[in-house]
Design a protein around this nucleic acid. Structure first.
Length: 734
RNA sequence: GGGCGAUUAGCUCAGUUGGUAGAGCAACCCGUUUACACCGGGAAGGUCAGUGGUUCGAGUCCUCUAUCGCCCACCA
């Protein structure tokens, strides 16, 4: 018998209309909560576990294609495992993104004429927090819009109460192990942002500036930064340089310099490049990393020339108080008057700028907090392959070990080499920042009673306790993410069940910032790897392969495309042809192609719902179309295998191809002639077979296109009421 | 300077251990009384960047080159 499909199937598929209804239904039924799945009998309690954390989006912006790709890929893996009987957990959250958030809010305050740095600390913090909370709720709703099957009951924020507890505990343990220390070191100072930043937060920009050769006693030295040269009293040459053979290490000489005569010392050091310039240079240890190291090797004096606002100090004499940018030309003028400029030419080189503020980075020697990556310590508790509890280890060593022995696998594999090359050059991690938004360094000092690590004052009645004014690098708290979201430092069931997590899916741009730091924290603090597999998705470019940028206006806004094409279409476009680690050139055309696909599926449903009846396997077994059943089963196996092997780009394409060119073009075409005649001898078997294949077709497509398939499932259930309430919790192979 | 990736149909890209080149989009021809014109059918389109090699056989493995992209380091 034949029935009318629901009225809405008579026109094309309207994506948004269904999307906005379905997500709240999923959420209300808590089907993305693994414990609820067990209660509902969807998952066995002792089933294998699939767990994953969502890389927490920064609270500074709105969802972009990068987020969309992340949600999509992760949701495909999550839904697939949930539908295959795994106890499946995917945890949502957001990152407070310390510097990024603070500088964004400060800019807005400045526009209103408010000087943010003059506000009391608490007041500025409150304003930033207010912005962060607002932005966070926007992002949450956008993650839902993508169809992400996240367990919202476990939502976390890197700066919420539970995570503060985790951060303080982590700091305390590392401090007690001697891995966190405070030291005077040369650091990257951002005068614009008024904070230190880590090496990884530097962006090098090409710049053409003047390269001067200056007469320095008997030497000619080169520089692009004459404004730092006031205090230079060491000239460094290579020990093997024949040109300077007559000078010995430690020789001194008098020479005329910017502000009058000085006494200079000759230093011989291997690090000098004899080919470059004259092979002689003077050093400014306070404001250059390389110079700092040379000075340390030879025990030379260091003197600060530039203050933290980028202005010259009294050592500059007449130039004191000037900004370096304006001082440079004037200094050269004076040097010319003194006849000390030998030559000048254009020179292209890279200058260090701060990622967030885009200000020039000015190295400074400062007292900061560091994590020691090469210091040996005893790892009390270890579940790591190849490391025993009580072994002596270093952070660097463990970070290398777990990837080296494949405890953690990266997909694609080539990122392992990138990872190792970074680790090999790793220096101590500077974790203190001179901003106020973030986790405040939990170090309290007392003039008499010493130092304590805690979130609040060790003794509120004793006002002599004072807390370190700095905050922690935002990556310190996100490095704890795989286990802080599961309740650490408390010993929770969640930790036991879901950690180590199964997979981390993220962009390769945060391999060092985040992936490596998570490995560091997890191995050290809980003696486990944080995840077994790291899957790197590609970067999205436009259809011409250009970077997405605001000025080009070439980005696809997921929320706009949602209105015109629907999320399912976007998800397909982001999945097909997007292998891990390779870039994805995405244009509206591609999304349009998959919009047609959703419509195709819609029309398949219109046909199949007309002939649907509860499939009876016994009837089907006598069907002349048995090969279709076998073929579909094989297809689903292939798709499943490809997902397990991280080839979702192939899996999605296979589902697409099967749906369109096998199911629609072959199977429907063949069965429709039989179904047109209710008296046909094969009518019953045709109807049962079609219904069965159709039901599986929805399952097959659900992980990629959750909305449309779930909507159709609802209509299938009206004809087949013993099916699970949601397709999202229906088993893949049943 | 060091490293990685890419180069396949007009465009965007697949091509799993080497065995006669694939998809989508675009363009071309034909076809609309009931699943769908957001469609169906058909045809067309490629010395797989170049070079040398291994092999019975190379888009696939190895050499070198070119172009593009990315990452890391950074020289005063």
């Amino acid at each position: 018998m034949k029935q009318q499909p629901p009225q809405e199937y008579l026109s094309g598929y309207n994506a948004v209309e269904h999307e906005v209804v379905l997500y709240p239904e999923w959420e209300a039924a808590q089907i993305f909560n693994p414990e609820q799945n067990i209660k509902d009998g969807v998952t066995e309690e002792n089933a294998p576990v699939f767990s994953m954390v969502l890389p927490p989006p920064n609270v500074t912006g709105i969802l972009h294609t990068g987020h969309a790709i992340m949600c999509t890929v992760e949701d495909v893996f999550t839904r697939f495992h949930r539908m295959n009987g795994y106890r499946t957990l995917w945890i949502p959250g957001a990152d407070h993104a310390a510097i990024a958030t603070q500088s964004k809010v400060e800019k807005e305050l400045e526009k209103k004429g408010i000087k943010p740095r003059q506000l009391p600390r608490e007041e500025l913090f409150a304003k930033i927090q207010e912005y962060a909370m607002e932005s966070k709720s926007t992002i949450q709703s956008q993650l839902r819009a993508m169809g992400s099957s996240l367990d919202w009951s476990r939502e976390a924020f890197t700066l919420d109460e539970a995570r503060q507890e985790a951060v303080v505990e982590a700091f305390k343990r590392l401090y007690n192990l001697g891995l966190i220390y405070q030291g005077e070191r040369i650091v990257n100072w951002d005068p614009k942002g008024q904070t230190v930043i880590s090496d990884d937060e530097i962006i090098y920009k090409e710049e053409t500036s003047k390269f001067y050769e200056l007469q320095y006693g008997p030497f000619v030295i080169g520089t692009v930064r004459p404004e730092t040269k006031f205090g230079d009293k060491y000239v460094v040459v290579h020990p093997d340089d024949a040109r300077y053979a007559q000078f010995n290490h430690g020789d001194t000489f008098e020479c005329e310099w910017i502000n009058g005569p000085i006494t200079a010392t000759v230093i011989k050091d291997d690090s000098i490049d004899m080919e470059f310039g004259t092979g002689a240079m003077t050093i400014t240890p306070w404001h250059s990393k390389v110079d700092f190291e040379i000075a340390n090797r030879h025990n030379l004096e260091k003197e600060q020339i530039i203050d933290t606002y980028g202005k010259l100090l009294p050592v500059a004499g007449d130039f004191a108080g000037m900004k370096i940018s304006e001082a440079r030309a004037k200094i050269i003028e004076k040097l010319k008057e003194k006849n000390l400029v030998v030559s000048e030419k254009d020179y292209t080189h890279n200058v260090a700028t701060a990622e967030r503020t885009e200000g020039m980075v000015e190295p400074q020697i400062m007292k900061q907090w560091f994590v020691a990556v090469e210091k040996e310590f005893v790892l009390e508790h270890s579940e790591i392959d190849g490391i025993n509890s009580g072994d002596k280890v270093t952070l660097k060593g463990m970070m290398q070990h777990v990837v080296n022995n494949k405890s953690i696998a990266m997909v694609p594999e080539r990122y392992e080499a990138v990872y190792f090359s970074w680790i090999n050059n790793l220096h101590d991690w500077c974790i203190s920042r001179q901003i106020i938004y973030g986790h405040r360094i939990p170090v309290w000092t007392h003039p008499v009673k010493g130092t304590e690590i805690s979130l609040v004052s060790p003794d509120a009645s004793d006002t002599e306790w004072s807390q370190d004014p700095d905050t922690l690098d935002t990556w310190f708290s996100s490095a704890l993410w795989t286990f802080s979201t599961l309740g650490w430092p408390n010993t929770t069931d969640d930790l036991k069940i879901y950690h180590p997590t199964s997979m981390l899916e993220t962009g390769p741009d945060i391999l060092f910032f985040w992936v490596a730091r998570m490995i560091l924290m997890s191995t050290t603090l809980i003696g486990q790897i944080p995840f077994k597999t790291v899957y790197f998705h590609g970067t999205v470019y436009d259809e011409k392969g250009r970077k997405i940028s605001k000025s080009l206006g070439n980005g696809i806004d997921p929320l706009e495309i949602r209105k015109t094409h629907g999320i399912d279409a976007l998800r397909m476009a982001l999945t097909v042809g997007n292998p891990p680690g390779s870039n994805l050139n995405l244009g509206t055309d591609k999304v349009g192609a998959y919009k047609k696909y959703t419509n195709k599926l819609w029309n398949i449903a219109r046909f199949c719902l007309s002939y649907y009846q509860k499939p009876d396997m016994e009837v089907i077994s006598t069907s002349p179309w048995g090969s279709y059943v076998a073929e579909q089963q094989e297809m689903m196996n292939t798709i499943g295998k490809n997902i397990e092997n991280h080839k979702i780009y192939l899996a999605a394409e296979e589902a697409y191809h099967y749906t369109w060119h096998t199911f629609a073009d072959k199977i429907i075409e063949e069965l429709k002639t039989v179904l047109a005649d209710t008296e046909h001898a094969d009518y019953e078997t045709a109807s049962h077979t079609l219904s069965y294949l159709f039901k599986n077709l929805l399952t097959m497509n659900h992980v990629f296109m959750p909305f449309i398939t779930e909507k159709i499932w609802k209509d299938v259930r009206t004809l087949n009421d013993d099916l699970p309430r949601f397709l999202a919790i229906t088993q893949w192979n049943k």
